[in-house]
Simulated scan of single mutants.
Amino acid sequence: MPDTDRSHAEKKARIKAAKDRVLAEKTAEKGLVIVHTGTGKGKSSAGFGMILRAIAHGMPCAVVQFIKGAWDTGERRLITAHFSDLCQFHAMGEGFTWETQDRTRDVAAARAGWEKAKDLIRDPAIRMVLLDEINIALRYDYLDVAEVVEFLQTEKPPMTHVVLTGRNAKPELIDLADLVTEMTLVKHPFRAGIKGQPGVEF
């Protein structure tokens, strides 16, 4: 074996041994609170990717959409048409705040979505619940972040994963979460005059 190949193999063997030692120490399991936030695209997409992964593992799951409920989205079509036996889908929103232009309606829709979310999270048979765009409802104080945090701390079953998406996640939610990912905007076609397109945006 040439020296460069031998050196490469030895280096990778050392890395693998170190990784194996670290992995051997990680034995705990728990239901995670996961937040996808930030100004970049991909927050809901990441959440739905996790839902599809749960479905692939045969894990009962559920989705509550807080803002985009009026949209005919690809993920909604896919889940309701093919995976309704494993995943409940509840579209509770009425559109973005600048579309409804009615705070009372927005608050009522957010409250209804949160009540449904609490019922789903309390059910120990459901392993993952996606609260899509709940951060928007929290940002505009349609929901009380202290209430949401307290519920997740005190009533979420120990092995249930809850995924919360939307930009401007409240600090209290970030502090509570086990996993937080911030999507950073680098470029977006909308700024170049390109509209949202099926399969990419919805």
Rank of each mutant, 00 (worst) to 15 (best):
T4E: 15
H8K: 15
A9G: 09
E10L: 15
R14K: 14
R14E: 14
K16R: 15
A17E: 13
K19C: 04
R21P: 06
L23C: 09
T27M: 14
A28G: 09
G31R: 06
G31Q: 02
L32N: 12
L32M: 14
H36W: 07
H36C: 03
T39I: 07
G42P: 02
S44I: 04
M50S: 03
L52H: 00
R53W: 00
R53D: 02
I55M: 03
I55K: 02
P60H: 01
P60V: 00
V64Y: 00
V64I: 00
Q65A: 05
A70M: 14
W71Y: 14
E75P: 03
E75W: 05
R76K: 15
R77K: 15
C87D: 06
C87I: 08
E94R: 11
E94V: 10
G95R: 00
T97A: 08
W98G: 07
R103G: 03
T104Y: 05
A109W: 06
A109R: 04
R111T: 06
A112F: 04
G113A: 09
E115K: 13
E115S: 10
L120V: 10
L120C: 09
A125W: 07
I126V: 09
R127E: 07
M128Y: 01
L130Q: 01
E133S: 01
A137W: 06
A137C: 07
R139K: 11
R139P: 02
L143K: 04
V145F: 09
V149T: 12
E150Y: 00
E155T: 06
M159Q: 10
V162D: 05
R167P: 07
A169Q: 06
E172C: 03
L173N: 01
A192H: 13
G193Q: 03
G199Y: 12
E201S: 03
F202P: 05
